[in-house]
Design a protein around this nucleic acid. Structure first.
Lengths: 245, 245
DNA sequence: GAGTGGTCTAGACCACCTT
DNA sequence: AGGTGGTCTAGACCACTCA
């Protein structure tokens, strides 16, 4: 099988090496989201492993939702859907438990030198630059969420989105489609804060009103940090839903 | 293999039926936490399936952390550890990212008729009774977390814990050890609220100070709701950490 | 050395989809 | 009919643990 993709995995099981190899090849764009991988017999032969061992590797990638397999059809690289972005990675609900469908609008988009916290959070070298986005999200027409997002310029060259109009795509769908960056998991730290005056103004609430602050770092297929985001939620009408297992 | 445990699964794959069967038998206490299951050849024979198919079922239970398998040793029913309760199901961190180790003390423990929200959240029949706990948790000596917990009396008969002294066990460890209730996953809804006067007093903060409110429902091995918990966190020195994947 | 789980293979058969 | 992934089996060999 192919070597070199994961030199530290040389002594790990075959199926694990095959899985790491395939993951790296997908990450590098050898097969793009929506495209089919070769059939099991072909892939197994090209990797020099049995079909059973390959199946075990593919099962791992499928569980991670990196690929989708359908009997009679084939194996495909999974495309990030707006459903996954909305209902899995950021699940806002009404106070009665029904899912909320926020609309969103960009307020500003600039490219600037990264701040120290951003360098640390995104593991960037000194002097790196980031795109900085400010986004407002509306639930039932009310401005309920304010977000400040930082993206490494190196990973998102020429990043662009219209400012001041409603966005049609979820951001994570946009990242994948236009920059080949697929978000696989996020880490979040939550706290309650008193609304600072500038944020209170944008969320149309009183200064010092309690807001839910979500500090997120998002990771890509190779588990590199690729997005830092701070979200302030006005939770009078909203809940942020999470599942731990 | 054994039938009857999951009649709706009759047409599902063998490994899935075996997995459901074993899960039900563990839930019912046929093997208790810390005890060993039979060896693979013995279990496979008793289920009338091949060792390979059994392995697939066991792999599912292991991924769910219901069992632990060790080469050369055997297969054991996993015991809930305080580490898992603390760092997986309720991960409080200092503002610098280091894990916080809260101590805790029960404030009150009563058994009363369940309120309508509790009946709904815990899927209890009308007229059911619940144990109601109030707990205070301290981080670095500061009272940072206040919790109100409801447990169905039917599932936790004779529930008892000392009031007013520091608790030695994590609650989830206690549930498992003394009532055979193992928590497998939790659903949470988060919001920011202004501290009500009674809660502010116990957390030694000002009234209307922003608090992080976590409304949790915990589920057992068979995915039944078994605990309702509301936690108020004073997040000046704390973060609540979460991972989504 | 005997017994445990872990890896890997090969092959038969099934269910599903396309043409 | 032919190709895809899904299930199930049987068996060989490996790695680890304990007496």
């Amino acid at each position: 099988m192919r070597e070199g993709a994961a030199p530290t995995l040389e002594r790990s099981p075959l199926y694990a090496r095959a899985e790491a190899d395939l993951r790296a090849r997908i990450a590098r764009g050898e097969w793009k989201p929506g495209e089919a991988l070769p059939t099991e017999p072909a892939l197994a032969a090209s990797l020099g492993i049995s079909q059973g061992t390959l199946r075990r590797a593919l099962a791992g990638l499928e569980r991670q939702r990196l690929i989708e397999r359908r009997q009679g059809i084939g194996t495909y690289v999974a495309a990030t859907t707006s459903e996954r972005a909305l209902f899995h990675f950021f699940r806002a609900e009404s106070i009665h438990g029904t899912p909320a469908m926020p609309t969103s609008m960009l307020h500003s988009l600039d490219t600037e030198d990264a701040q120290p916290q951003e360098l640390r959070a995104l593991k960037l070298p000194k002097g790196a630059r980031v795109h900085r986005l400010t986004r407002q999200r509306f639930v039932n027409g009310a401005p309920s969420i304010l977000e400040m997002i930082a993206l490494p310029e190196a990973l998102f060259p020429g990043f662009t989105l219209p400012v001041g109009v409603e966005l049609t795509d979820e951001l994570y769908v946009h990242y994948e489609r236009f920059h080949g960056v697929k978000i696989m998991r996020v880490e979040e730290k939550l706290s309650a804060v008193a609304a600072p005056i500038e944020i209170a103004r944008m969320l149309k609430c009183e200064e010092k009103w309690p807001l839910l602050l979500i500090e997120r770092i998002a990771f890509d297929v190779m588990d590199r940090p690729v997005e830092r985001r701070r979200s302030w939620l006005e939770t009078t009408q909203l809940r942020y839903a999470v599942e731990l297992r």
